[in-house]
Each structure stands twice: as C-alpha cells, then as structure tokens.
Amino acid sequence: MNAPAAPAGSLLTAEELRKAYGPTLALDGAGFSIHPGEVVAVMGPSGSGKSTLLHCLAGIVPPDSGSIMYAGREMATMNDAERSALRRSEFGFVFQFGQLVPELTCVENVALPLRLNGTSRKEAEKTALDWMRRLEVDDLAKKRPGEVSGGQGQRVAVARSLVTGPRVLFADEPTGALDSLNGERVMELLTDAARSTNAAVVLVTHEARVAAYSDREIVVRDGKSRDMERAV
C-alpha cells in the first residue's frame, strides 16, 4: 500500500508521512515520489488528505513523522526559515483561489516571488512580463486581480508560480474555479511551461480530465497513498 523506497533519480520523495490535525488523522503513512519534468496527479475524494500531502511535500506544514527528501536533503530537519527559503527559490505554487494580492497589479503580483528573493523591482517586473506573455496574459499587466476574469487570474497565478524558475510546481486544484474550456487552457499552458523548464508538477485534483494532463497519478484515501503505476 505504501510507496516503496525512493526510486533512483527522484527529485522529491516522501515516506511514511503522518500528520494529525487535532483528533483528525489527515495523513496515515502516505508516500510520494516525483522525477524532474514529471507531472504527477494526486487524486482522491474530498477529505482524503491530498491537500495535506501537498502541504507537507511543499514544506508548508511539517509532518508529525516520516521523511521528505528534496534533492538529497531531508526537509523534516529544516527549520521554518529554511523551508520558507526553499519555497521562495525552488518551489512554485498555484492554488484554487485567494492567492493574488488584490491591491497589487497583475504584473506586480507575478513579480512578487522574485522581489521576495531580492531581485530589483524593474528586473523582476521585466521577467514577470515575459512569463505573462508566455501565458498570454501580458495585456493585463496593469490591471488589478479584481478586474480580470477567473481564467485570466489563474493564468496570472501560473505565471507567478513559474517566474522564479522553480524545480517543483505545486498546483492545488488549479482549475477548480474555472469552466472546462478555461481550465483546459490553463492546464495546457501550465504543463507546457513546466515541461519546457523541466520542472516537476505536483497536481492535486479531483477532476479526471485535469488529471489526464499528468504522466501518472497517485490516489490518496484515508490518509494512505497508492501509487497506481507501481501497483499495477
């Protein structure tokens, strides 16, 4: 049932993850592994623990026990500042909603991760604009998130997640709030962009048509994960 030992060449591997929120056991021995350039869908019913798995993998919340190896380093032993730095420089994030700062313009939002890493504002916004062009939203640069449509906003968010050239992109229901046409376009752009930079994508979704953009999927149920490729 649990993922086997870390396969050779894997970028991010987790084993025997356990995480409880109060009395609720969100993860109960889950495992995971992903290679550079791979898109892995994390599927499972609501409340199964798939978001918690993503949060643990991304170093947002520390697991109660278990091991998470990223590029040869054990994340469980890192402190909050180290994990934050890792998230800033090596990881990218796309969430379902609530992620763009409503006061900043779109280009400022996209440039934000670069600015957090210390890039100058001018340079950061230039890179940001390049990414917005790749995601076909460069004409929204001066608009605020409240003035753009959901699909456009999500593309801006994808641009932001990729702007630092992350090695792992975490996407939690990135199309959850979009219609199918917009959702598919976002997925196409996201996977294309990730493949072109050889970034690994951890894609949490409950939609099969979104999961179909992945290379393989793992299923989380009752806090346990099941790697379908290896199970068959």
Binding site: A58, A81, F93
Partner: peptide, 16 residues
Amino acid sequence: KKLLSSLIAFGTRRRT
C-alpha cells in the same frame, strides 16, 4: 486569512 496563508506558502518571510 487565505491570502496571508498563500503568501506564506510561496515563501514570503513573516517579517515582510
């Protein structure tokens, strides 16, 4: 709340 959490998720320092 949501916005703050997502900003933290992508590595914003608490100090910022």
